[in-house]
Structure formats: C-alpha cells, structure tokens
Simulated scan of single mutants.
Amino acid sequence: MSESVNLIIDTDAGVDDAQALMLALGHPNAEVAAVTTVGGNVPLENVIPNVFEVLHVMGAEGVPVFPGAREPLLPGPREHAKTFHGEDGLGNYQPRAARVTPQSEPAAVAIGRLARERPGELTLVALGPLTNLALALRLEPELPRLLRRLVVMGGAHTARGNTPRWGAEFNFYYDPEAAQMVAQAAEELTMVTWETTLAHPISPEDYRRLAGLGTPRARFFADITAHTLASLAKFGYQGLLVPDPLAMVAALEPEAIAAEERHRLWVETCGEHTRGQSLLDYGRSGLEPNTRVVTALDRARVLESFRRALAG
C-alpha cells in the first residue's frame, strides 16, 4: 500500500469528478484536507451542492468546502459540458444530502493558506479548469514550492482534444490563461491527459461488476454514470471514460503510473482552433522539463481503487 497522501482537491464536480472524490475519500491512506470548487463542467451553483452530495454518500460531511471562481480569468464564449454530465453535473441525479453552506474563505485564498500552514505536506489534485490555481499563484507565488505534488487532469499531449477547439482538452480550453500561468509556474507537474483517458476506459464488464456491488456507494455510482454512459455510446465510445479518477489514482498511488514522458509544458492562448492546446517541447526549448505526462497506468490498480471506494 502506498504512503499517506494529504490532499486538496480542486474540482468542477461533474460525474467523473464525483468518482475521483469517492476514490480519495475511500482510500485508507488518504486525508482530504479541503475541497475547492470552480465553474467548468457545470456552473459553480451546481458544483458546490454536487460536492456536498458526494461527501454525504461517503460519510465525509466534515471535509471543508471552499467556493472558488465562477468564471475564467478572461471573458469570452465557453460551453459547459452538460452533454456528458447532465444538467446538474451529476447525471441528473436526485440529491438526497442536506443542503450545506460552504466556507466563507475563497478557494484561492484557502489554497495558499493551507499550503503555507503545511509546507511540503499537501498534494493538490486539480480536476477542473485551473482558474483557482492561477489566482492562488498571484496571492502566493511560492505555492509550487510549498506543495508536495501538483497533479492535473488536463491537456491533450498529441492535440487530440475534446472541445470546439479541436486541439484542446476541456479543462485547458475553459481557461487557457489560467492553464498557461500554472504551466509556467510549475516546477514539477504530473499531467493526466485526454489521450491517456481514451486509452484507459472501464470496460462494460468491469463497469457492471462495480455498479453491481450492492452498496449505497455503488448504487450512487450507477445512478450518476448512467447518463454519461449513454452519451459516450452515442459518440462511439465503449465503456466508461474516467479522466478525473485516473488523475486521482496517479496522485494517491504514484506507483500505479506505468509509463510517462517528461517535457516542458506551455498552453496556447491564441488561435481559432488551438487556443487551450497543450504544447510540449520534446527537449527543444533547452529548459528543464517541468511536466510528467502520464501515458499509462496500471489498470488493475485503477479498478481496485474503484472497488475499494464503492464496496465501503
């Protein structure tokens, strides 16, 4: 079993974010110090209750939740991801948790404060647009050196995107300026990309086994993923794509990373088709690599992380 991991989870609380939260909350060696919220998959007014719903299902109502950025750093047209996540971001799930009010401290302030209070201890796992992290960097420029690790679900390392800008993955597309700020400030960033997501679906057979575990957590998993499965099938995908859970496994159990590449990272902020695209230097910049691009994970460990979280 991996060593203890202390987490800040920054999330736009769609269906796969919910699963990633469940993996963290169900891991025996993980402590979730805080959840920070950001608009992205759905508006912030949906994100916050979605987080509380997951905390309720997992019996973790004591985890503090901090409200973050509603909008990207710069104005402009964006599309939420309701096609895959449902109108509410949880697959049109009927909530059962009591309504809970988040902390008053803004997410960016909380990230910097927690990092200062616990230098070298906290792993920040970013599952949504990087707006909160960019704001936190402005407030606390030492943030990259205060964190133990930074793990990001984002980017498309071969420019196979999933947004109206063909080369851009959703989280970087939604706030390219924030992604670029984080990429330039990072000294060591672990990135799980869209192509890695496509290479690691949960098969229909494994999905049925997980959804059929018979626990309240497994029933919640089945309820929130039904809409996403149907949407993925319309686009020709087999099984369930789990981008945020893959990033969470990489954060919780680094030994589950089976293959990676090391590069310097930039994020394009211009271009009709390329704004939000992640760019890797392949050694040509002359700069030290600052990004571990995860290209493969141990599938058995990913499935075991799901089984453990859902069986509890």
Rank of each mutant, 00 (worst) to 15 (best):
residue 20 A to R: 02
residue 45 E to I: 04
residue 297 L to H: 02
residue 177 E to V: 09
residue 113 R to T: 05
residue 266 W to R: 14
residue 268 E to L: 12
residue 99 R to G: 14
residue 18 A to S: 11
residue 110 A to H: 08
residue 153 M to H: 13
residue 4 S to I: 00
residue 124 L to V: 05
residue 39 G to A: 06
residue 271 G to M: 02
residue 91 G to F: 05
residue 108 A to M: 07
residue 152 V to S: 09
residue 80 H to M: 03
residue 294 V to T: 13
residue 106 P to R: 01
residue 100 V to P: 00
residue 233 A to E: 13
residue 68 G to C: 02
residue 162 N to R: 08
residue 182 V to H: 06
residue 178 A to Y: 08
residue 227 H to K: 13
residue 248 M to A: 12
residue 163 T to H: 03
residue 78 R to D: 05
residue 90 L to C: 14
residue 203 S to V: 13
residue 104 S to I: 11
residue 53 E to V: 04
residue 17 D to Y: 12
residue 257 I to C: 08
residue 225 T to S: 10
residue 216 P to S: 01
residue 222 A to Y: 10
residue 214 G to M: 02
residue 32 V to S: 03
residue 59 G to Q: 07
residue 310 L to Y: 06
residue 78 R to C: 02
residue 308 R to K: 08
residue 267 V to L: 06
residue 111 I to A: 08
residue 136 A to L: 03
residue 130 L to M: 13
residue 135 L to F: 06
residue 65 V to F: 09
residue 162 N to L: 11
residue 84 F to G: 10
residue 305 S to N: 15
residue 30 A to W: 01
residue 225 T to P: 04
residue 161 G to A: 11
residue 160 R to Q: 13
residue 266 W to N: 12
residue 93 Y to G: 05
residue 241 L to F: 05
residue 193 T to F: 10
residue 272 E to M: 07
residue 289 P to A: 06
residue 273 H to Y: 12
residue 77 P to E: 14
residue 234 K to I: 02
residue 252 L to T: 06
residue 225 T to C: 07
residue 142 E to Q: 04
residue 308 R to P: 01
residue 26 G to I: 12
residue 151 V to I: 10
residue 251 A to G: 04
residue 122 L to P: 04
residue 12 D to Y: 09
residue 254 P to M: 12
residue 129 P to Y: 01
residue 293 V to Y: 01
residue 158 T to K: 11
residue 56 H to R: 10
residue 27 H to C: 05
residue 5 V to T: 14
residue 84 F to Q: 05
residue 179 A to V: 00
residue 90 L to T: 06
residue 121 E to V: 15
residue 196 T to Y: 04
residue 119 P to I: 11
residue 91 G to W: 06
residue 36 T to R: 08
residue 35 V to Q: 10
residue 94 Q to G: 10
residue 169 E to R: 03
residue 163 T to E: 00
residue 89 G to Y: 11
residue 224 I to T: 05
residue 172 F to H: 15
residue 98 A to V: 07
residue 264 R to F: 05
residue 265 L to H: 09
residue 30 A to E: 02
residue 8 I to L: 07
residue 174 Y to R: 11
residue 142 E to M: 05
residue 300 A to V: 07
residue 102 P to R: 14
residue 139 L to E: 15
residue 77 P to L: 13
residue 240 L to A: 15
residue 10 D to W: 10
residue 167 G to I: 03
residue 255 E to D: 13
residue 97 A to K: 01
residue 275 R to Y: 07
residue 191 M to C: 14
residue 49 P to Q: 05
residue 63 V to G: 04
residue 116 R to A: 02
residue 311 A to P: 11
residue 49 P to D: 11
residue 287 L to F: 04
residue 280 L to K: 06
residue 255 E to W: 10
residue 13 A to E: 12
residue 199 A to H: 11
residue 7 L to P: 04
residue 6 N to L: 06
residue 162 N to W: 02
residue 214 G to R: 09
residue 257 I to R: 02
residue 173 Y to P: 09
residue 297 L to C: 00
residue 242 V to I: 15
residue 154 G to V: 08
residue 131 T to W: 06
residue 24 A to Y: 03
residue 4 S to N: 10
residue 97 A to G: 11
residue 124 L to F: 00
residue 269 T to Q: 11
residue 15 V to P: 00
residue 283 G to Q: 08
residue 105 E to P: 00
residue 41 N to I: 15
residue 229 L to S: 06
residue 19 Q to E: 09
residue 41 N to V: 15
residue 85 H to E: 03
residue 195 E to W: 02
residue 219 R to Q: 12
residue 84 F to C: 04
